[in-house]
């Protein structure tokens, strides 16, 4: 965690997307925080997993000289020179990215305030945003003051019922339920799914569960079983919770970790009908 600033009220931001129509209701500004405690085989943005250790491996491959070592011996990125060719990400040995910004609460709020007329709110994603709940608590409180809503995109590994201050200003969460079987979940992500299960139940109970997602990967996961079980669980909690089934796509995925194919549309539709038959009223296929 060398690059994490000592001051508490700063985070490493992988990127901020000013407008997104796919991360919650309405148009939202999405803030991607660097660092994740999962290491999913199918991760499509693995460069968000680890924090940069300033090895400098990426410096030489940058065609624009946008990466340098600063006086504190840290890799520093000059956004205005960057052409987003992704060569630095390919050169990175530890699934990280030099293209990040250390941002304070004030700086993020300034940016959100500028975008306020255009958005319903913000969604914090990652990496895994709940690894930095203290910061999130502060961020959500300030964003609420602007009259905007706060959504959280999480892998469900951090128990949210233990974070009452965070929940105060969190409107709703979108939780990944990657596998219903704990062993399979561990094989896929590196960690079991006990907290995920607890979070889904808890957030549904407090009416803050906007969406649950499952990525469908042929030949890797027991997709039928997972969708069947997860949809039964959701239907029992609140049949209106959106259940999103996501087609696996190879884009961005590390080849050494996983080489699979996208499921056929027919296969996906079959899974959708299972979820609907189990009582989910809002099943979405993407």
């Amino acid at each position: 965690m060398q690059r994490q600033s000592k001051k508490k009220k700063e985070v490493i931001v992988n990127k901020i997307i000013p407008f997104s129509s796919v991360d919650g209701p309405g148009n939202r500004t999405v803030i991607f925080l660097q660092g994740c405690n999962f290491d999913c085989l199918y991760c499509h943005n693995p460069e968000t997993i680890n924090i940069c250790n300033n090895c400098g491996n990426c410096l030489a491959v940058c065609p624009k000289g946008a990466l340098t070592i600063n006086e504190r011996d840290q890799v520093s990125w000059q956004e205005e020179l960057c052409i987003a060719c992704d060569k630095c990400l390919e050169a990175c040995l530890r699934d990280s990215s030099p293209r990040v910004k250390i941002m304070g609460l004030e700086e993020i709020i300034r940016k959100v305030r500028k975008l306020k007329p255009f958005i319903s709110g913000i969604t914090v994603s990652g990496g895994e945003a709940t690894l930095q709940t203290d910061f999130l608590t502060d961020l959500f409180r300030e964003v609420k003051k602007l009259g905007l809503s706060n959504f959280l995109d999480t892998n469900g590994s951090v128990l949210l019922e233990d974070k009452p201050l965070l929940l105060e200003n969190l409107d709703m969460a979108m939780i990944d339920f990657k596998s219903f079987k704990s062993a399979e979940h561990r094989r896929l992500t590196g960690l079991d799914n006990i907290n995920v299960m607890k979070n889904v139940k808890f957030m549904a109970k407090v009416d803050k569960l906007y969406e649950v997602r499952t990525v469908i990967v042929p030949n890797l996961l027991d997709n039928y079983f997972n969708v069947d079980q997860i949809s039964k669980l959701l239907a029992g909690l609140d049949s209106k919770i959106r259940y999103k089934l996501i087609k696996y796509r190879a884009m961005g995925v590390r080849k050494e970790k996983l080489e699979s194919i996208s499921p056929e549309q027919e296969y996906m539709l079959e899974l959708v009908s299972i979820a609907e038959k189990n009582g989910c009223q809002n099943v979405v296929l993407v």
């Binding site: 997104s20 309405g26 255009f118």
Partner: peptide, 20 residues
């Protein structure tokens, strides 16, 4: 096409555009 799933997002943008 993805915006068809979330027309409210386009409305948000239009609101901001009008204010701008």
């Amino acid at each position: 096409r993805t915006n068809k799933r979330n027309p409210a997002a386009v409305l948000d943008i239009i609101k901001g555009a009008m204010q701008s």
